[in-house]
Write a protein that binds this DNA or RNA. Structure first.
Length: 348
DNA sequence: AAGGCGGGGCT
DNA sequence: AGCCCAGCCTT
């Protein structure tokens, strides 16, 4: 049996039962694919169920406020996915009359959809033989064929796409694509792959040459940046606080946070209240206490955030317009959601 | 071509 | 601690 047939045979016996496998509706497939970008199935699953029940059609999603969409996305990460999802939903609803584009060439034009996602939707929903290349596919192909081209080099990206395209079963492209991804996720795992039960034991180059541990090759490593965050959790006498939206380029675009003073190291109370930024925010008398005695380290893939939450009690602040009971309506980073869970446990 | 963007699970 | 996950966008 050739590669494709062996793979599909494996898939018939080992595929995972997932809700988006029961449909070819491009709206649902699109939703699942966006959610699963750089995200494990286990993490994305509950979000998929929540989105499909709250927004059964693309029109429902298009009608929602962006803030509502972000709130529902809260905790899933890479929030530009949610903003692009919403943008594209409005485009499909308003300009395309709710009809999803049906060819790879048209699909890839949509915001938030790249080569992988366009291939997935075109193959699964419209039977177009366009091969997906995600992290699973890089791993499976680099091992099976013994290819050491770095998967994140431009040469590697082209090479693996071309190879996958020659392997795809043109009579069932969607099944082939899902099969190779499931195979990578379940069998040909990054660590401790299940080579002893593998249908490719006699043809896998990496297994024969003992290269399983070294393939695939990835060339760059990400640098981690350390940052020191001081969130000012305002409480006025009339039970209001300040939240502001993060704009611009950095992390958590579109999410809300307490006023933030960033420093180049952990600072104490005196250093905080004597800083220009603090004085600008609170010229009047305040009572301040540090909520977390030990710094909270929140790790993103590329930044480590050393965080202190300062409880700032003051008589009144003209900036404080949000009622405490309304905080939960705002989309916030997990770092802040975790704080709120401890600070006002009754709410959760 | 390179860097930025979350959060969580596994080793 | 480091790596990876149904990647994409910007510069």
């Amino acid at each position: 049996m050739n590669f494709s047939n062996t793979l599909i045979y494996w898939y018939l016996q080992n595929s995972r039962e997932l809700p988006w496998r029961k449909t070819k509706n491009p709206y649902y497939i699109w939703l699942s694919e966006i959610m699963l970008q750089q995200t494990r199935v286990a993490q994305g699953l509950s979000y998929y169920l929540k989105f499909t029940s709250t927004f059964p059609t693309v029109f429902d999603l298009a009608k929602a406020d962006e803030s509502t969409v972000l709130k529902m996305w809260q905790g899933l990460g890479y929030y530009s996915r949610a903003r692009n999802l919403h943008f594209t939903a409005k485009q499909i609803a308003n300009e395309f009359n709710g009809e999803f584009p049906s060819t790879f060439k048209e699909i890839i034009k949509l915001k938030g959809i790249g080569d992988y996602t366009a291939s997935a939707i075109a193959s699964i929903c419209f039977d177009e033989p366009t091969a997906v290349v995600d992290g699973n596919v890089y791993r499976v192909l680099s091992r099976y064929f013994g290819i050491d081209t770095p998967i994140n080099s431009s040469a590697g990206i082209k090479e693996f796409k071309k190879l996958a395209q020659t392997l795809i079963d043109e009579s069932q492209p969607g099944t082939f694509n899902q099969a190779i991804m499931d195979f990578g996720a379940i069998q040909c795992k990054p660590k401790k792959p299940l080579c002893m039960f593998c249908p490719f034991t006699d043809s896998c180059v990496a297994l024969q040459k003992n290269l399983i541990e070294t393939l695939p090759v990835k060339e760059k490593k990400i640098k981690v940046r350390n940052r020191y965050f001081n969130f000012l959790v305002i409480k006025t006498k009339d039970n209001k606080t300040i939240l502001s939206e993060r704009k611009g380029k950095g992390i958590w675009q579109g999410l809300y946070q307490f006023p933030l003073i960033e420093s180049d190291k952990n600072i104490n109370k005196n250093e905080l209240i004597s800083s220009d930024e603090f004085i600008a925010l609170f010229p009047d008398e305040t009572t301040i206490s540090l909520f977390n005695k030990k710094e909270i380290v929140h790790k993103l893939s590329h930044q480590h955030l050393y965080t202190q939450f300062w409880i700032v009690e003051t008589e009144y602040s003209s900036e404080a317009k949000i009622n405490w009971s309304d905080i939960e309506k705002y989309p916030v980073p997990v770092l802040i959601a975790n704080f709120l869970k401890e600070y006002q446990p009754k709410k959760y």
